[in-house]
């Protein structure tokens, strides 16, 4: 781990949900422009690690420093604002608002930041073009395939040009071909904007799109560059 120059550093994270320990001293760091895969068996705590890193869930203890600022000292409102403007998210399920059209979905984070509808949708369309789903702009999520939906979700995650993109099993529901396409587009787009990508996956072929991987086991993380 090379904390100097890191954008996001977490040390000794602990988090329990009731009696279940999800994180037990996990460490993490990521540089701008880096794609880090978080791997591990299901239930190992990788999603919790992502939620903590993204400031969605506060850890029970440990520190998370984003861009030089300790997240624990931020209010919920500040963390929300951070998520809106600096972070992007792609999940496996349930992320597209079914009643909004695709372009409206993609434009949503911009609109939450106060961008006018017209401008937001223009930017959104640009990103959809990059992810090759611009032709679906006026359709609703219910009318498109899973792979297309995931690309729309990636466009939405990138539309604010986030500095960190959090992806939790982004290809979990997709077949190999679609999954790869989504990963290719996602990493390409992230690299082009120098965004860091935290990629939670249990699939090696998805993790192969990363620069580096860490493995989470029983709530402990293991940085694979330090092994041996």
């Amino acid at each position: 781990m090379t904390p100097t120059g890191s954008l996001l550093i977490a040390t000794d994270l602990r988090k329990a949900y009731g009696p279940t320990t999800a994180l037990d001293g996990a460490e993490f760091s990521i540089h701008p422009g880096e794609v880090v895969a978080v791997m591990g068996p299901s239930g190992s705590g990788k999603s919790t690690l992502l939620h903590c890193l993204a400031g969605i869930v506060p850890p029970d203890s440990g520190s998370i420093i984003y861009n030089g600022r300790e997240m624990a000292t931020m209010s919920d409102t500040e963390r929300s604002a951070l998520r809106r403007s600096e972070f992007g998210f792609v999940f496996q399920f349930g992320q597209l608002v079914p009643e909004l059209t695709c372009v409206e979905n993609v434009a949503l984070p911009l609109r939450l930041n106060g961008t006018s509808r017209k401008e937001a949708e223009k930017t959104a369309l640009g990103w959809m073009q990059r992810l090759e789903v611009d032709d679906l702009a006026r359709k609703r999520p219910g009318e498109i395939s899973g792979g297309q939906g995931q690309r729309v979700a990636v466009s939405r995650a990138l539309v604010t040009s986030p500095r960190v993109l959090f992806a939790d099993e982004p290809t979990g529901a997709l077949d190999s071909l679609n999954g790869e396409r989504v990963m290719e587009l996602l990493t390409e787009a992230a690299r082009s904007t120098n965004a860091a990508v935290v990629l939670v996956t249990h699939e090696a072929r998805v993790a192969a799109y990363s620069d580096r991987e860490i493995v989470v086991r029983d709530g402990k993380s293991r940085d694979m560059e330090r092994v041996v």
């Binding site: 090696a204 990363s210 493995v215 694979m224 092994v227």
Partner: peptide
């Protein structure tokens, strides 16, 4: 095992 998986991933990359 971990160093092997790391090596595998490196190859896969």
């Amino acid at each position: 095992l971990d160093s092997q998986r790391s090596e595998h991933l490196r190859m896969m990359r």
